[in-house]
């Protein structure tokens, strides 16, 4: 008998508070697996956001600090500049990163801070009960857009990977999803690549994960993953938006 798959040491033994089928848990596991495989668990500091993932500090078995809403990239900047030998990453939702924290993420990327951001795009404010996020799809319902998002009133969704990839300080930007086992494997490779960029000191790296919020979408976990496949991914195409790793190596 040989073990094909088991829970990573990068996660604590705590049960999570996440709703059943919430993709936060899948992404936590992938990040933890990568940090374990890269032998970084002893040297990593995670900056957790305001949002459902605020309690991620109970689940990642690494050192952690919690930032004010949206300010994780600023907090991570300070930590990384004082401890350049540590691996520092932020884990942020779309309300945190793309609404209240837009300035912080844009300028951290523009400055080319040598940190990594794991960005969970579930198209909604999960923690506070399903208000519209900057990433909510056109026509998608939210408690603050009960008839569905009307782009003439609420404007258009922000495509974070596309936007961040225009900044010279951003060296690796990829959008992935965890809607199928095959995409989970790809997402893990992308997360590993982002941490390798940080290890090499190349600059800022961001992985956007197109995710689900079954509870506030009002869908079962399985139906929510179908919504990711059929509605979210067509609007937020998966792929590498920026890869300057080869160029820097020359």
């Amino acid at each position: 008998m040989s073990v094909v798959f088991q829970k990573t040491k990068g996660l604590t033994d705590n049960k999570t508070h996440y709703c059943p089928g919430c993709s936060h848990g899948i992404v936590h596991r992938l990040v933890a697996e990568v940090l374990e495989e890269m032998n970084l668990l002893e040297d990593t500091i995670v900056v957790v956001p305001v949002g459902c993932a605020v309690l991620a500090l109970n689940y990642f078995d690494v050192d952690a600090i919690q930032a004010a809403h949206g300010r994780a990239p600023a907090t991570a900047t300070g930590i990384k500049r004082v401890h350049p030998d540590k691996t520092v990453f932020t884990y942020q939702g779309d309300g945190d990163l793309a609404a209240i924290g837009t300035a912080e993420i844009v300028h951290a990327a523009a400055r080319g801070e040598k940190i990594t951001t794991i960005f969970i795009n579930n198209g909604i404010y999960g923690m506070t009960g399903g208000q519209m996020a900057p990433t909510t799809l056109p026509y998608m319902k939210a408690t603050t857009a009960p008839l569905g998002r009307d782009v003439n009133i609420q404007g258009y969704p922000i495509k974070v990977s596309e936007m961040i990839s225009t900044l010279d300080g951003a060296k690796y930007v990829e959008r992935v999803s965890v809607n199928t086992p095959a995409n989970v494997i790809k997402a893990k490779k992308a997360i590993r690549k982002a941490f390798e960029v940080q290890q090499k000191g190349l600059g800022f790296s961001l992985i956007e994960v197109v995710s689900s919020c079954p509870t506030n979408w009002g869908l079962t976990p399985v139906k929510a993953m179908e919504f990711v496949s059929e509605k979210m991914i067509p609007y937020y195409p998966l792929g590498v938006y920026k890869d300057e790793t080869a160029e820097e190596a020359k």
Binding site: S2, V4, T16, R29, V178, V184
Partner: peptide
């Protein structure tokens, strides 16, 4: 196991 958000599944060959 890859889809499990709770890391609740162990797989052996």
């Amino acid at each position: 196991a890859r889809m499990c958000p709770e890391a609740a599944i162990t797989v052996e060959r």
